[in-house]
Amino acid sequence: MSRIDEITRYVVAEFAPDIRADELDADYDLLDNGVVDSLGLLRLIGWLGERYDLPVDDIDLAPEQFRSVRAVDAFVESALVKGPAL
């Protein structure tokens, strides 16, 4: 399974259990459309940190990085490549 598929499955399972994973477009705005709220954002960041071993407390976080599944995937890629922004 690709990383973007894995993120999609997590988002659907945790925040949109009424739809199937293949129904969630990777560019769908998760924040503006209320799929992920503020506490949901913390859950998502926590999951990403543990799943991909990211030092989330050291990375310069911004909500834009979690606006869509594609944005989340890009955030993980960037964090893995660059490492923490200390």
Binding site: D57, L61, A62, P63, E64
Partner: peptide
């Protein structure tokens, strides 16, 4: 302080 729109994440820290 922090990015625009990141206040919730600043506060969480």
């Amino acid at each position: 302080v922090g990015k625009v729109g990141a206040g919730f994440l600043v506060l969480d820290h």
